[in-house]
Amino acid sequence: MLRKGIAAAQGRPIGRLGWLRGALGALIGIALAGVVTKLLAEGSAPWLVAPIGASAVLVFAVPASPLAQPWSVLGGNMISAAIGLALGHAIGAPWLAASLAVGLAIAVMTLARCLHPPGGACALLCALGVKTSGWTFAVLLMPFLPNVVLLILAGWAYNTLTGHPWPHRPHPAPALPPGTWAGTYEPADLDAVLESWDEVLDVDREDLDALFREVEQRVLTRWKAGGQ
């Protein structure tokens, strides 16, 4: 169901989360981050980092994803970059520093509740940057921090203006009348299924609940109308 929804959104240009909406948002976000950071940067300091492009895909194309929320973008990128720099300085072998940086970044992001896929790229880039470009912890302030903060600001403004309030707020689940088959579904049932699956789904539990409730509501309405 979720895959079909994504496929449908990818097939239309503007509609609800259409590809044109996401593309324009990413264009604006990256342009803002790049221009402002370049004005702040001194000399030959970098003014855009590659992982910010991956963050833009999440922020503007799937703004409801738990991986795309502001704390995930900020914490995931900055914490991972710091880990990459630390291990890049501490470990002489670049391949080992990069490997440990990505693994540790995933663990720390998960514990800090800011799991963000581009964070893995930040950890890798910074661990290797220490060896290839002589990066120090100053790179966190230029360009990582302004890139991330400006992208978050652009995401907040653009998503809100285009009808997708960000940070994402789960849709309220409609109340169903008691005494119907639809009313037998309890939140504990959903929790039990999620626990039995033992998988991390890229959707909030509250959004899943609201989705199922809406489907139940539509089925119940159809039954009442005699269109079983």
Rank of each mutant, 00 (worst) to 15 (best):
I52Y: 06
H171I: 05
T110I: 11
A157N: 03
A61D: 04
L211R: 06
M142E: 13
S65F: 10
A112N: 11
P170R: 03
Q69A: 01
S80P: 05
A225L: 10
D191P: 01
F144Q: 05
P66F: 02
L211Q: 06
I6W: 14
K4Y: 09
A23E: 10
D191R: 13
G120C: 02
V108F: 14
V49F: 01
S196Q: 13
L208T: 12
R222F: 05
A9C: 12
V57N: 06
V193C: 07
L2S: 13
L161P: 09
A90H: 10
M78L: 15
G22E: 00
L220K: 10
T221Q: 15
H89D: 04
P63V: 02
A127H: 05
T132D: 09
F137L: 06
A182K: 06
L161A: 15
L24Y: 12
T136Q: 11
A175M: 09
L17E: 14
V130D: 10
R113V: 02
N147C: 00
Q228P: 07
M109R: 02
L27A: 15
L141I: 12
I28N: 05
C114Q: 01
I106M: 12
A182M: 08
M109T: 02
S72E: 01
L67I: 07
G43A: 05
G92S: 12
G5T: 11
G76H: 07
L161K: 09
A8W: 08
V130H: 11
P66K: 02
P46H: 00
G34T: 07
V59E: 04
L145Y: 00
L153Q: 00
T221G: 06
V35C: 05
L201C: 04
H116K: 09
L39P: 04
T162A: 03
V49I: 15
P172M: 05
I83C: 08
L40S: 03
I28Q: 04
W181L: 14
G129R: 01
I106K: 04
A90W: 12
T221K: 14
D204T: 09
I6D: 13
D207F: 00
G103D: 01
I52W: 06
L67R: 11
A97W: 08
V130Y: 13
K224Y: 09
G179H: 09
L150T: 10
A90M: 14
G129C: 00
P178Q: 06
L220G: 12
M109L: 02
H116G: 09
H116V: 07
R213G: 02
L96P: 12
L125M: 13
D207L: 03
G179Q: 07
P13C: 10
P177V: 04
L48A: 07
G84L: 07
I28G: 03
S44V: 05
R222W: 06
T160S: 12
P178H: 03
Y158L: 01
P170N: 00
W181V: 08
A26L: 01
L176S: 08
R218Y: 01
A41Y: 12
A112H: 11
L100E: 07
C122D: 14
G134Q: 03
I91G: 13
V149Y: 01
L151R: 07
L17D: 14
L32I: 15
P170V: 03
G43K: 10
P51R: 04
